[in-house]
């Protein structure tokens, strides 16, 4: 097969990779905020649950987690289809890393801001949603960008649980044609291009958030 014949095949896998990457990043962000906020202002029980989640998923290997979800859970009667398992596993993993980012950024919002909110008699939830989070989210963006790229790279591991993503297609093409050099070079380039797209998108988002913070909606118009 020539390079041009290999490419469409790999692109098909890349679509699956893109889908899984986007879905697991978004779901991971939900886990990250939930666990991060629970750590900072969740009360003792919620904070302990969040900490356990974070330590387990940061402390073990992603591949072990995926195998565990894929092979072990069905044995105790819980099973999803592979794509759902892949998305869920990646999201749990990246969410644990993201939770630490969220926690760090929330803590970094200055004490003065919290005191000002208290002086205005805002509720805790109001302070979190309207005062602390908008400032903290901007601080989180560079780390989130790194995590999103990390997550993209991690999607390659879902090929182990029989999802036909880019890595899976690359591997089956290789077994079919034995053309290692063009297949893996193209695969690496596709992942690299996807990472560059993610980096650009995150930077765009960060700039948008920054502008929003400097000129809050009410004040701008």
């Amino acid at each position: 097969m020539t390079w041009t014949q290999l490419l469409p095949n790999l692109i098909k896998g890349a679509e699956v990779t893109a889908l899984i990457a986007v879905a697991s990043t978004l779901l991971g962000a939900v886990f990250a905020f939930a666990a991060g906020i629970a750590r900072v202002s969740g009360g003792r029980l919620l904070s302990a649950i969040a900490l356990t989640y974070i330590e387990i998923f940061r402390g073990t290997s992603l591949l072990v987690q995926l195998f565990w979800l894929y092979y072990a859970l069905p044995l105790i009667g819980i099973s999803f289809d592979p794509i759902a398992t892949g998305i869920f596993g990646l999201a749990l993993n990246i969410g644990a890393y993201g939770a630490e980012v969220v926690r760090g950024a929330l803590v970094s919002v200055s004490e003065q801001q919290r005191e000002a909110a208290k002086a205005l008699n805002f509720s805790g939830a109001h302070t979190m949603i309207h005062i602390v989070l908008p400032q903290a989210v901007i601080e989180m963006m560079p780390s989130f960008c790194n995590l999103a790229i990390q997550n993209l790279k991690d999607t390659a591991l879902v090929s182990f649980i029989s999802i036909a993503d880019l890595s899976f297609h690359a591997q089956s093409l290789r077994n079919l044609t034995l053309q290692s050099v063009p297949i893996y070079t193209l695969t690496l380039l596709i992942y690299f291009a996807m990472a560059l797209v993610i980096a650009a998108a995150m930077r765009w988002l960060e700039n948008k958030l920054r502008r929003g913070a400097a000129f809050p909606k009410g004040a701008a118009s």
Binding site: L152, K153, S167, R174, S180, T185, Y191
Partner: peptide, 11 residues
């Protein structure tokens, strides 16, 4: 940094 370990490994 931006490409998966798995593919680098296969490569």
């Amino acid at each position: 940094r931006d490409t998966p370990l798995l593919i680098q490994l296969f490569f």
